[in-house]
Design a protein around this nucleic acid. Structure first.
Lengths: 188, 188
DNA sequence: ATGATTTTGTGACGATTGTCACAGGACAAA
DNA sequence: TTTGTCCTGTGACAATCGTCACAAAATCAT
């Protein structure tokens, strides 16, 4: 819980009172490797603060896995669309390692947000970070080639390269596994 | 202002009182075609609600224009990263037609948000919509081929196809102008 | 209507990428 | 150690794409 508190303080001003009032919405939860946090078709009613380990979001399209995001320590993993709109999730979130999370329950969180403005502001800032990152990744594809995208991630998000296997990373970069292998080789 | 009020009501519950208190943050502003709403290097301190017309965000990289987003009536255009963090914008926003907007001033908006929770919630919901859309577009590149991306936009965002020229659309879809022209042809 | 400008289409060709197939290496469980 | 699984590299070949060049078509301003 201490990591989470630091995370919150880095985002917004947050009184001890707000922290206390937020507690009913929080639960610690652990996941084993390959355990699902969110399943395709399910309605997402949680935010997962990642305390230890990492997870990924992926689509399963005709049995082919396409990874769309990786989430590490001190980040929030969720399906923003499903969480915000109440529609079913079109993708899965799965633990890639033994994973420790703090789960924010949507219903409780919304109740508290209505009364405690600092919690509402926290929510806005969490989504803002998420939006910023999504925009950044979205633009990668519009601005850069596959090789340049890899270089960008290497420079700006080295932990992804260090912790995620090449096969896993490929679909995230929008290329085939073999292509990524060759890109990496031809630069040596 | 009436369109904006409807837009707000579609997002969140909003009392007449909140609407009245929000007013000091709002200004109507018109832009001529090709006039800049936001300039690269500038700090973004506004949200632009689009009342009439449309605009686009674009990067200018070594003189080459890469379009990253198109924003139509009843949407908010801004640089979320710059607006949220106070850092300089890395891209431009420009009017593609005669444009009528309602500008939200950041400083005023934040002042009001601190006091009126409905305004804070409105902000969260605006960003949520933005995040959802960015995620959707980001995933297009991870899941689909160029042709499939075009088909997706045609089906889900037909106004983009109708109002944006092929040349403009190409970089948004992450392909060369000529490629987009050929994709369109080979399906007929 | 006319000329200028922008947009679109297309050919040629090289570069990049996807796909299929298979082999070797790393790693963990038995 | 052995076995099985996952990950990575690579060859071959076809498909797609980027780039340059130029022509045709559409649009705009006067």
């Amino acid at each position: 819980m201490n990591n989470l508190l630091n995370y919150i303080h880095s985002l917004t001003s947050f009184s001890d009172e707000s922290w206390k009032l937020l507690q009913p919405a929080l639960t610690q939860k652990k996941f084993n490797k390959n355990e699902l946090l969110l399943k395709q078709g399910q309605i997402c009613d949680s935010l997962f603060y990642i305390d230890k380990g990492y997870c990924k979001s992926y689509y399963d399209i005709d049995g082919i896995v396409k990874n769309t995001g990786f989430y590490f320590e001190n980040e929030i993993a969720t399906n923003v669309r499903s969480f915000g709109s109440g529609q079913r999730s079109e993708f899965n979130i799965i633990a890639c390692e033994q994973l420790t999370t703090v789960v924010f329950d949507k219903e409780d969180l919304f109740k508290i947000s209505k009364q405690v403005i600092e919690v509402e502001t926290l929510g806005r800032n969490c989504i803002r970070l998420f939006a910023t990152k999504q925009e950044e990744f979205s633009n990668l594809f519009k601005l850069y080639s596959a090789q340049e995208r890899l270089e960008y991630i290497e420079a700006k998000y080295p932990e992804i390269i260090q912790r995620v296997s090449l096969s896993q990373l490929a679909s995230f970069l929008g290329v085939a596994r073999e292509t990524l292998s060759r890109i990496r080789k031809r630069r040596i």
